[in-house]
């Protein structure tokens, strides 16, 4: 499972690394779909109990998403949501949040 997971993360990173979005705002737009729960630009309301994503490293975010998808990381809802995005989209999202201060 771990092997699969790290291969998967590598695939995610590769997809993200080679992504040349025609629209420079694609990452921003995709990340905004997460903001309902994780806060505008990944800054969750303090004390709300939801993880802020802003400023997290891209690798860490992609690892978490990969673990949600594989089931390695137990979740109430994120395993269902992570499966709705392509690898390239997850890469753009992680990149966007990583760049937020």
């Amino acid at each position: 499972m771990k092997v699969f997971t790290s291969t998967f993360v590598a695939a995610l990173l590769l997809a993200a690394g080679t992504a040349h979005a025609a629209d420079p705002n694609l990452g921003r737009n995709l990340a905004a779909t997460c903001a309902n729960c994780h806060g505008t630009n990944g800054k969750a309301v303090k004390g709300s109990g939801i993880d802020s994503l802003a400023g997290e490293s891209k690798e860490k975010l992609l690892q978490k998403l990969a673990d949600f998808r594989s089931g390695d990381k137990p979740a109430s809802i994120m395993h269902q949501i992570a499966k709705g995005y392509t690898n390239e989209q997850l890469g753009l999202i992680a990149e966007y949040f990583a760049a937020q201060k």
Partner: peptide
């Protein structure tokens, strides 16, 4: 657990719109 998450969802979506 999701009872707590539901209230966290509300706080964050309200902030995402209005804060």
């Amino acid at each position: 657990l999701e009872g707590k998450v539901a209230m966290a969802w509300a706080k964050n979506i309200w902030a995402d719109m209005l804060a």
